[in-house]
Design a protein around this nucleic acid. Structure first.
Length: 413
RNA sequence: GCGGGUGUAGCUCAGGUGGUUAGAGCACCAGAUUGUGGCUCUGGGGGCCGUGGGUUCAAGUCCCAUCACUCGCCCCA
């Protein structure tokens, strides 16, 4: 093993893997265009405050997973652990409420100081989308449809389940939270150690505990559905109806929660059992309180994010690259002629593999390895006659083609 | 941050109870075939056996530490 290791939790994306990532990014971008979402890019680092304020000081992401540092000017900087906070900050910085509704997508590296596992790295990539300024449930439906469309396009639909829940509006959630905390306090001695700390920090998370004892308590816990006010019920009904209208199946999961206060109403995750413990492929929800929490105008918001590495694990292989045409010159004159020919072919949109050296055997071998579909063999004899040998590398058919119709012939395949 | 597993060639992995020059397949390079690839055959290059320390006459093998990956918890995409 080489002594030069990459930093823990970081990985090189070698060309093949990079192509898979590009495929996912491009699929997400193209689908986004169909829904009217356009790419925007925010900085990879922000003032620490941007994340500390939006993620809340109780979340693990903020308390122990951020890459924070002081820059040379003494500013407190953090590498972004997720994408939404930066978009929200940009919305405020640029007065984007003028453009409401704002429909954007993004892709980029994120950083979290976590214990690495398969599908969980310290530098990873997310695609995501945000819809700002739409309070109608139609926005939530569109968001889910958009995410689902990407998963379908990537061929992952059969491996994925849409789990759905509502967090209600702030009033409903506050009411539920109170009875839930009371309930668990009544059974404090039976709670797991993790959940005891959650009781203060993030009581809703107890619903999602994997501890056996917790699960028994949770089974008898008060139901959120019983504490939803009229407004919240109507909103959730609109969501399920909307999904029904466009034929997206979902599974209700009352234990699906978010911890932070600015989340409300819609909460969804696309999950899979093909990735072990890292089962969440795409997650999102409504966050009407986020922008105002950051000091901007009260602005409704819905969004989702998905981990590119996890998607890549599921997709497995990138679609094959375009098959090039290999040029095989023999001799100096032919070499020079091929230089020009390669340029012309490339400018005509044809991928060209130009062997840099070697005899014909080596060059053909290399052409084969490059998965070339055709080889253009050009030697002194051919040059003198104004022709080239055009060899089909799949079936070994070889024929003579006049140089002045070569590009045309190759273009036709 | 907590608990378990694994680190031998570029990749996938063999190397009972410690024993002398560490192996295979794939990949790579060359030749058989000097202007014709894939298939086949022959040969070749590649290893601080993750790293550091310890036990021993002797360590890839046993012990400790450390680093990385990995499975689960936590958290989350």
């Amino acid at each position: 093993m080489a002594s030069l290791q990459p930093v823990r939790g970081t990985h090189d994306l070698l060309p093949e893997q990079n192509r898979l990532h590009d495929h996912i990014a491009e699929t997400a971008r193209a689908i986004g265009e169909l829904y009217g979402y356009h790419r925007m890019t925010t900085p990879i680092f922000e003032f620490t405050d941007v994340f500390a304020r939006t993620l809340g000081d109780t979340s693990d992401v903020v308390t122990k997973e951020m890459y924070s540092f002081e820059d040379r000017g003494g500013e407190h900087i953090t590498l972004r652990p997720e994408g939404t906070a930066g978009i929200a900050r940009a919305y405020i910085s640029n007065g984007m409420q003028q453009m409401s509704p704002v429909k954007v997508s993004y892709i980029g590296p994120m950083f979290r100081y976590e214990r690495p596992q398969k599908g969980r790295q310290r530098q990873f990539h997310q695609i995501g989308a945000e819809l700002l300024g739409v309070e109608q449930v139609a926005g939530d439906v569109e968001m889910i449809a958009y995410g689902a469309h990407i998963l379908k396009q990537l061929g992952l639909w059969d491996d994925v389940t849409l789990e759905l829940n509502t967090l209600g509006d702030p009033e409903s959630r506050a009411a539920y939270r109170t009875v839930l905390v009371d309930y668990f306090k009544g059974h404090f001695d039976k709670l797991s150690e993790d959940s005891r700390t959650r009781l203060d920090k993030n009581p809703l998370r107890i619903l999602d505990s994997k501890d056996e004892g917790d699960r028994e308590l949770v089974a008898n816990a008060p139901l959120f559905a019983d504490y939803l006010n009229e407004n919240s019920q109507q909103f959730f009904k609109g969501l399920t109806e909307g999904l029904g209208d466009i034929g997206i199946a979902y599974q209700l999961n009352p234990r699906l929660v978010r911890g932070l206060d600015y989340y409300c109403h819609t909460c969804f995750e696309f999950t899979t059992n093909t990735l072990g413990a890292q089962g969440t492929v795409m997650a999102g929800g409504r966050y009407d309180g986020l922008i105002s929490t950051m000091g901007g105008p009260q602005t409704a918001g819905v969004g989702w994010a998905a981990g590119v590495e996890r998607l890549a694990l599921m997709v497995g292989e990138a679609p094959p690259a375009a098959r090039p045409v290999a040029l095989i010159p023999m001799g100096d004159d032919a070499e020079r002629h091929c230089r020009k020919l390669a340029q012309d072919l490339r400018e005509a949109g044809i991928a060209v593999e130009l062997g840099y050296a070697g005899n014909m055997k080596k060059r053909l071998k290399r052409a084969d390895k490059a998965n070339a579909r055709l080889a253009v063999i050009l030697g002194d004899d051919e040059l003198a006659k104004g022709v080239a040998q055009l060899r089909d590398l799949d079936n070994s058919d070889q024929r003579e083609v006049a140089l002045n119709v070569l590009i045309e012939t190759v273009s036709k395949g």
